[in-house]
Computed example of a mutant assay.
Amino acid sequence: MRLTTLALLMLPTLAGAEEIAQVGVDWIGNDIVIEAVADPVVGGVTCHLAYFERSVLDRLSQGNWFEDPSNSAIQCAMTGPVDVGTLRPGRPEDVFSEGRSLLFKSLRVKRIYDDKNRVLIYLAHASELSEGSAKMSMSTVALPPDALGGPGAN
């Protein structure tokens, strides 16, 4: 038990998501869920993540009880002052992760700082234990000259 607790404490702290809306897409109750995810490290950037959530009726009829599709879309915007001073350019960092199946599959958002072009890149993708997935979506946030940290900052 102590080893499990220690392992959980060592995981990076990821942003929590706030559900903004659910959009019904059919008569059996499948939805597209839209969540707001604030970047916990940079601050001043909020991403809106959309993904498909299967209904109980769909799960019963399809026989795949414990898994949602990996498809997602992401759009990010500057919503306040941005500080990139602690970021390492070109290094993908976890911002958000949410399970998409009982085990082994998750929807992730990673941040990559392009220091040369003064842009934050946010990549939403599926992560699976045994097979990678080509399903992804990307959004960029151009940084103003007054963003804290990096070249061009005051």
Rank of each mutant, 00 (worst) to 15 (best):
H48N: 01
H48C: 06
A50T: 15
Y51C: 00
Y51I: 06
S55D: 14
V56P: 01
L57T: 13
L57W: 10
D58E: 12
L60E: 15
S61W: 08
S61Q: 14
F66K: 10
D68N: 13
D68Y: 01
P69Q: 15
P69S: 15
N71T: 06
S72R: 04
A73I: 01
Q75S: 07
M78D: 04
T79A: 07
T79E: 11
G80H: 10
P81N: 09
V82S: 09
V84F: 02
G85Y: 15
R88K: 14
R88L: 05
G90P: 06
G90E: 05
P92F: 03
V95Y: 00
V95F: 05
F96A: 01
F96W: 03
F96T: 00
S97Q: 11
E98D: 10
E98F: 13
G99P: 01
R100T: 03
L102W: 07
L103W: 14
F104G: 01
F104N: 04
F104M: 13
K105R: 07
K105C: 03
K105Q: 12
K105Y: 11
K110P: 06
R111Q: 12
D114K: 15
D115T: 10
K116D: 14
N117E: 14
R118S: 09
V119T: 15
V119R: 15
I121E: 14
H125K: 10
H125R: 11
E128T: 11
E128H: 07
E128A: 15
L129D: 07
S130C: 09
G132P: 09
A134G: 08
A134F: 04
K135E: 02
M138S: 11
M138Q: 02
T140M: 04
T140L: 13
T140Q: 03
T140F: 00
T140A: 01
V141T: 00
